[in-house]
């Protein structure tokens, strides 16, 4: 039974059980964090398949290292730290082999992948639908063009909603650096999206 009142306490209890080789407890950790980790990884890595592989790799590494995990950092911070490192390593390898990382908005040959990337929108106004899709495409493109360091921080803060101090722990940099990276990332995104934000700003 993992439905404890306090999420932090529940995480600690799950970690202790997982450290004692309780696979069910580790399974609960995966269920709890897989969507958050995958959403972050997929924003970092455009390919659905590669993002899913990296998300799995995040949990495999967590599984193999769970015994040495200490509760000085939260489980959330630890998992995002593993995922961030994997994404940046992947990004470096991809840049070396292909020159550039592909975009979330890039056309794919895989019909299933394309369907998964569709943006769910229950607004049936065709013009607005088109505008939102265009804006989403431009956002993906602007995010893709950001350096890894800036993209990591802006995704963790604005998309995943993590606080500055957790991001500092994940990125391994001082709090002031997190703030300046966030400012630079937002400023760069604003510069690229400004023409599309006329109706929203």
């Amino acid at each position: 039974m993992f439905a404890l009142g306090n999420a932090m306490v529940a995480d600690t209890a799950l970690v202790q059980r997982a450290q004692a080789n309780d696979r069910a407890a580790f399974n609960e950790i995966v269920l709890r964090y897989k969507s958050k980790v995958f959403n972050f990884v997929h924003r970092m890595i455009p390919s659905v398949q590669d993002a899913e592989d990296l998300t799995q790799e995040t949990f495999v590494r967590a599984y193999t290292s769970i015994r040495s995990f200490q509760s000085r950092a939260s489980l959330n911070t630890w998992l995002f730290r593993i995922a961030t490192n994997l994404c940046i390593d992947y990004s470096r390898r991809t840049r070396k082999s292909q020159g550039m990382v592909t975009s979330l908005s890039q056309e794919t040959d895989d019909e299933e992948s394309e369907r998964e990337r569709d943006i769910p929108d229950h607004d049936y106004d065709p013009q607005r639908l088109l505008l939102n899709k265009e804006l989403g495409t431009q956002l993906d493109r602007a995010l893709r063009d950001l350096p890894d360091k800036l993209r990591t921080v802006v995704l963790l803060y604005d998309v995943e909603g993590l606080p500055y101090d957790e991001i500092a722990a994940i990125a391994g940099c001082p709090l002031g650096t997190v703030k300046s990276r966030l400012f630079n990332a937002r400023a760069a995104l604003r510069d690229k999206l400004a023409p599309y934000l006329a109706g929203r700003a």
Partner: peptide, 11 residues
């Protein structure tokens, strides 16, 4: 825009 971006989930 970032905060309202659609979220992805695993297969």
């Amino acid at each position: 825009l970032l905060r309202s971006a659609p979220r992805f989930d695993t297969s």
